[in-house]
Nucleic acid binder design. Sequence first.
DNA 1: CGGGCCACCTGGCGGC
DNA 2: TGCCGCCAGGTGGCCC
Length: 278
Amino acid sequence: MPELPEVQTTVNGLQSLLGKEITNIKLYTTKLRYLIPKNIIKIAKNNKILKIYRIGKYIILKLSNSYSLVFHFGMSGRLRISKIDNYRLVKHDHILLFIKNRKILSFNDPRKFGFIDFAISKEIYKKKYIIKLGLDPFDIQLTYHYLFKKISNSKVPIKQILLDQRIITGIGNIYASEILYDAKISPFTPGFHLNNDKLKNLIKSIRKILKKAINFGGTSIRNYVAIDGTLGNFQNKFKVYNKEKQKILGFKIKRVVQYGRSTFYCPSIQKKFTIRNN
DNA sequence: CGGGCCACCTGGCGGC
DNA sequence: TGCCGCCAGGTGGCCC
């Protein structure tokens, strides 16, 4: 489910747990994408949540001991806060964190591609799934120089490059299509074909689309809902995603499959070739 | 190493 | 109604 905007929306919603104590953890599953570390209970129990933030698509809860909890949502994971009295275990609730203010933070994930882990807070950047991440889209170090260095020798189509978390972290399959439409770049354009102007433009579109999606509370199709169960609204702002055969500005939208994932684009607006001129 | 492909898992939907 | 095939906000591991 979640790309950066959904993860950020979740992180925003979680802030009400700041300073609150985790009184217990209950596991209803032993394995999600990975085995759930058993000692996660010992590590979190009776500790306060001091900081809640994200790295790429990973959600981090920094605890009052030296540890942090790490959540990843995979394709269908989500976190939800309920009052203890209202809470009913629903299908695919795998992990419950009991919070001292009589709330429950539940992790639900039908497809089990998500995971939960812990890390020593100071060493979180050494985690194998964190260390390889590229720049955050909102990091000021993300410039056309950076992108040019990373992709100017690559034959890989830009759609796939946007999904490569080692280059930029946070973009997923929905926003990749929406970003490329906004930037008027064909999804097939190989990395080496993009000149500095196009890259500047692309970075602008990345930030614009992601910001807009965050402002709309993310995208709610299938599983994703916010921390309190409310829906995101960005799906109503899609220009191309899920709009095969519909028209935009009078032009047909197409769906193709690249690397096994759907790409939606408008061939008339996202022209196929760009000449390198730097 | 980079890049391409597949597996992991469950459920919803459309077609027959 | 039932079954089948296809599709789904991700990513790690296996190949070459």
